[in-house]
Amino acid sequence: MGFSLEVKNYRALQEVIWSPSGVCAITGPNGVGKTTLLSSIEFLRHFLERGIHGAVEFSGGTASIKNQHADAEANIRLTLRQSQCYWMVHAWLRSPLIAIGERVRIGEEVVAGQYPDESAAFVQERELTVSGDSVFSHAMSLLPAKQREELKGLHGLASNFRLYQNLQFWSLRTAGSPASTDLYLHSDGRNAFSLLRNWKAGRKEHEERWLFVRDGLRECFPELFEDLEFLVAGQTVTVQFFVRGLRQPIDVYSAPHGLLVALLHLCAIASAPDGGAVAIDEPENGLHPYAIRTLMDLARARAAAKNVTVLLATHSPVVLNTFNTEPERVYIMEPGHAMLPIALTEHSNPEWLSHFSLGDLYSDQAFGAQRRPPK
């Protein structure tokens, strides 16, 4: 199913219109907004969970959230759409206040919203007062059941979206995961071992997530990984790995880095609910090309089976080569274009692209080039 995202004047992004689905790669030079593109959806999640002030704080504060090239009076706009449901958020930075305009639509009908410069909001005919909160979160408890059901997918997409970057591998090695009842991977990955334990011991719908991760590790590392088991001490969960050729398991502190990388990426993908979306920043780091290609195969199979959108910000020719037969799923962030991101098949002739490996073209700077400034 996928989704559509429109962004205007948010951080490094001046204007975005984007409709990804399945497994997609986002590439381009450093500093053009690849990670910002993915974090714009996380901004909306934080708005739902923590209100506008928490979302702005997540984005670096009022000094960082607005694009520096935007007009002084211009607002920040984000629109998320899935099927016929829309969620539109407009923000005006009027220090020390932030004014919010918000609309929730099903088709052409506005079912909830709030007005900028006012604390008043509405859910259908019902008026209510909000103070920096998202009216969308209120609407999911106040609307009639039929409309809540129609909005469930869009709300779930926003509220469950995670961007995985800056994963805390050292913390996992030295301190394990705090015991919890979590059923999704946190953005920093520190709850991975507790999460896997919960999946393995949980209902069938969660057990299949555990099997996806365990069997995925076997496929990524066929000559290395056999299995893992959980160790619990007080409020801490850790693991040890059974490795081919060794009589005794090895503890997580001694485990190969790539094994932990793949474990967290597989947990991230498995955490996304049916119809949801997940983003991983530079998934190639620490992985052998074989493991990268296998991880991509696993991501595509799960995306197709669970209707999940997997977004990958990458500089890896190996990752890009896995898109040789579907270049329309590669998106470029490249300076000099009014609208970003650009589908590779709009940037370059698809017939011409079919004669090359995409990773080679990227390495040769045929697209997504890091340009030198003129002397």
Score class of each variant (00 low, 15 high):
T181K: 14
T322L: 00
P29Y: 07
F161I: 01
R173D: 15
L38E: 08
K66F: 12
V130M: 10
H315Q: 15
E15G: 11
S363T: 13
F58D: 01
H337F: 11
H288T: 12
K306E: 14
E6C: 10
A12F: 07
S137F: 04
W87E: 09
W199I: 06
Y331P: 06
Q248P: 00
Q165D: 11
M333H: 11
W352K: 08
S141L: 10
P249L: 02
A262T: 01
H90P: 00
I41S: 04
A369Q: 09
G61Y: 02
R11A: 12
R209P: 01
V237Q: 00
N30A: 08
A233R: 13
H186R: 14
L143R: 03
R173A: 11
W352D: 01
A299K: 01
S357V: 07
A303Y: 04
N166W: 03
R203K: 11
T322W: 01
L196Q: 12
T27G: 04
K66G: 04
E284Q: 08
H265P: 00
A303F: 06
E73A: 15
V310A: 14
D251E: 11
D71R: 15
A120D: 08
S119A: 14
Y10G: 00
G275F: 05
R372G: 06
T309W: 02
P350H: 10
L172R: 05
I332E: 09
F356T: 02
A12R: 10
E219N: 05
L167Y: 04
E328H: 14
G156M: 12
Y164H: 15
S159I: 06
I100P: 01
E282R: 09
S348Y: 06
L183E: 09
D215Y: 11
R50S: 07
G33M: 02
P335D: 07
E118V: 04
I100T: 11
P144Q: 09
S254F: 12
